[in-house]
Amino acid sequence: MLYRVEGIVIRSMDYGEGNKIITLCTESGGKAGVLVRGAKKSKSRHAALTQPFTYGEFVYFRNTGLGTLNAGEIIQSHHVLREDITKAAYASYACELLDRVLQDEETGTFWFKQLKACLEALESGKDPLIVMSIYEFKILQAAGYAPQLDACISSGQQCADEDMFVSPRLGGVLCRSYKHFDPAALSVTPRTLKLLRLFARMDLNRLGNIDVKDSTKLEIKHVMRQFMDMQLEVKLKSRNFLDQLDKYDM
Score class of each variant (00 low, 15 high):
132 M>V: 05
14 D>P: 12
53 F>T: 02
20 K>A: 07
171 G>H: 09
225 R>F: 08
110 F>R: 03
121 A>V: 07
139 I>Q: 04
138 K>W: 00
129 L>Q: 14
59 V>I: 15
181 F>N: 11
141 Q>A: 14
19 N>C: 05
24 L>T: 04
135 Y>H: 09
85 I>D: 02
29 G>H: 04
163 D>P: 01
75 I>W: 06
63 N>Q: 15
246 D>H: 14
50 T>M: 11
64 T>I: 08
32 A>K: 08
210 I>A: 05
50 T>G: 11
190 P>Q: 06
193 L>C: 04
40 K>F: 06
68 T>K: 11
76 Q>H: 14
243 D>P: 07
158 Q>T: 13
173 V>S: 02
175 C>W: 01
15 Y>V: 13
141 Q>L: 07
79 H>M: 04
229 D>S: 13
72 G>H: 04
104 D>G: 08
10 I>F: 08
162 E>M: 05
168 P>C: 09
23 T>N: 10
109 T>S: 12
85 I>Q: 05
232 L>P: 08
19 N>D: 07
157 Q>W: 03
93 Y>P: 04
211 D>M: 11
190 P>H: 08
14 D>W: 13
98 L>F: 05
216 T>E: 15
10 I>P: 01
20 K>D: 11
22 I>P: 07
186 L>D: 03
154 S>N: 09
207 L>M: 15
226 Q>G: 10
152 C>Y: 04
226 Q>P: 01
216 T>M: 13
117 A>F: 15
174 L>G: 08
75 I>K: 15
222 H>T: 15
47 A>R: 14
104 D>C: 00
37 R>F: 01
30 G>I: 08
228 M>S: 06
158 Q>I: 14
204 L>R: 02
37 R>L: 05
57 E>W: 12
214 D>S: 15
80 V>L: 06
21 I>K: 07
194 K>G: 02
85 I>N: 07
118 C>Q: 10
185 A>G: 03
14 D>T: 10
210 I>H: 05
141 Q>T: 12
70 N>K: 14
148 Q>N: 09
